[in-house]
Design a protein around this nucleic acid. Structure first.
Lengths: 345, 345
DNA sequence: ACGATCGAATGAAACGTTTCAATTGCGCGC
DNA sequence: GCGCGCAATTGAAACGTTTCATTCGATCGT
């Protein structure tokens, strides 16, 4: 009675044809009342579970949407995934959340997996910046929406946040607080997000009439808390020491905070700190973290909706791609408040 | 040339039979050199991607393992998922991470989805405590490993942490620091984890000769940061006010910390605080959080390995289930250090 | 009472693979 | 020159569904 029963077994037990069983499941209104009851009973008795696999084979596409993110352990992406998952479950689609860990190679692997699985579509935050991943998806005809990454509207849908603006907001805030030597802690430079935030920061520097080298870049190959600690160690060795640090995400900022704290450097008194994403834990940090907020759940949900719009376009491909760019928002907390301002509030 | 080409098209183009194409892909050594080259070229030219769907249909099972966790937004589970994912990817299996959000109903939905998908196996942290989920899996013959939840070894594999011990460690620590009125902030009581940690706490209370009501339970219906803040508000209204709080996880503890801080209650001076899980953000909190550490990634990895062992048992079902229980570890930080101890260090 | 109409059920094709028994061609030993 | 064995290839069945043209009865209008 375990998972071995097929539709044929049900049909035999109920004394009908397989077609009728299929109709009971998918088009109950086509079947007479008593037959329906009989078939339902047989299904129950055998513990029949229809094979989505076979179903897909016939239908040509699956009921699963894949989501590929840069780092599942980053609450920002976890939140984003949750947003997308909710929207997709609402329409009965399954979600497969995967983690490229920022590696283009892993990403390619996963995209192949998705292609083989004939997934309904893909929500992807590409680790590969060369556009190869997008090409791959297009070449294979897999519907996709880029998440947390922008794309010209003629090339596909995308939902992103204006990271150049976000970077500018962060640095503008620091400059206007009087800082003139600011460090930027980024992750792997092949990530567009990392580069954009720096570019925005540089814009802010220039518009203030400062020299480019007022913004010093500290590179890192990862974007997690440990990387933030490492970057902190390097920062402490710099001379002259920057008076403010802008981190490409909150994980880095939290690690940085730990490093600074351990070295007896006070935040914001000695060094001001600004993060990015405004994850839930930023507000609860040792020194509540100023951060550039991005609406994670909304990004995920919106991306899912775009994918659905593209996918459900059962009409004659009249779908037009959309490029949605959301605005980030600066949330100022203690980590970047000058003493005067703190008193001030 | 897009995702439309099937194995037949490849066969036709290469001038061979479909069986041969299949062999080129799966048993290259059976095919002569020149044929192999020709077929490979045809595959390349057509952009052929084999349909995992059809493959599965024939094979009867898929190459996907499902993982169902209580809360993807909780870094503990995210880390666990990462550990499992790594182990499974290493053997070429895909992972589908899903989020029951602690809801038994969602859980049932997902289990049905998994059954229909004929997944290779399931790693599940059950939200349903009644054992119905386990029964369901067994009835459908789906290999599974319980994660973060224990099970008698004759009923299936499980990897968990001794939460009763963990709860006891936390409360013992508080009691030995002199606390006599301790609040326990739990999540939904249908979660075994929540109950076990309380039970352990109660053990610790009793072994110290205190009355049961020295441990007061504050219930909550969720286990996130916001719920922690709510619980904080309720705690502040209690009188006499507890001198220590043990939270069922770090998210609750961080929320609690925010509430207390906002109300001007000092931690640990006025109230000591202990969390559970020791997520990465516990150490970076406003007041570094004492927490009961659980090895998230290791739990995930171990569970994946158990599932593989069960699944690969191509032999005659000689698999014996294992019940693995890991020991938690108390990590003491500032949030529970008495003033004397802080000076002391 | 007869064809038309309609609801209900059927049976077979199709989806894209893998697998396996059968076939083919070929060099070899005798 | 004959049968053998071997390597390479083939063709068809099977996996479990959905779909659709067809069949079967029965009811209906005239």
């Amino acid at each position: 009675m375990s998972g071995k029963a097929g539709i044929k077994d049900v049909a035999r037990l109920a004394g009908v044809s397989v077609g009728t069983v299929s109709n009971v499941i998918n088009n109950p209104e086509l079947v007479s009342d008593d037959t329906r009851v009989r078939v339902r009973a047989a299904i129950e008795q055998l513990g029949y579970v229809r094979s989505e696999t076979a179903r897909q084979l016939r239908a040509g596409r699956s009921r699963i949407v894949a989501m590929l993110v840069l780092d599942l352990a980053n609450p920002f992406f976890a939140e984003m995934a949750k947003g997308a998952e909710r929207a997709l479950r609402d329409v009965g689609l399954g979600v497969m959340v995967c983690n490229s860990a920022g590696s283009p190679a892993e990403e390619t692997d996963y995209l192949s997996l998705f292609a083989e699985q004939r997934v309904r579509g893909v929500l992807v935050t590409p680790a590969d910046t060369s556009g190869r991943s997008v090409e791959l998806l297009r070449a294979r005809g897999i519907p996709f929406v880029l998440v947390d990454r922008s794309l010209p509207a003629d090339q596909g849908c995308s939902v992103s946040v204006d990271d150049v603006l976000g970077g500018a907001m962060a640095v503008r805030h620091l400059v206007s607080s009087g800082h003139r030597r600011i460090a930027y802690v980024g992750g792997p430079t092949h990530l567009a997000q990392v580069r954009d935030r720096f570019a925005g920061g540089l814009d802010a520097i220039r518009e203030s009439g400062l020299a480019d080298d007022a913004l010093m870049s500290i590179d890192s190959d990862r974007t997690d808390v440990a990387a933030g600690r490492d970057a902190g160690a390097r920062l402490l060795g710099m001379s002259p020491r920057p008076t403010a640090v802008f981190c490409a995400n909150d994980l880095l900022a939290l690690g940085m905070l730990q490093s600074l704290y351990a070295a007896g450097v006070r935040v914001p008194h000695d060094i001001a700190l600004v993060g990015y994403d405004d994850i839930e834990f930023a507000a609860a940090a040792a020194v509540p973290l100023t951060s550039v907020r991005r609406p994670a759940a909304r990004i995920g949900r919106t991306a899912a909706e775009l994918l659905l719009a593209e996918t459900d376009g059962n009409a004659d491909d009249d779908h037009i791609h959309q490029r949605i760019v959301l605005r980030p928002e600066l949330v100022v907390r203690d980590s970047s408040r000058s003493a005067a301002l703190v008193v001030d509030r």
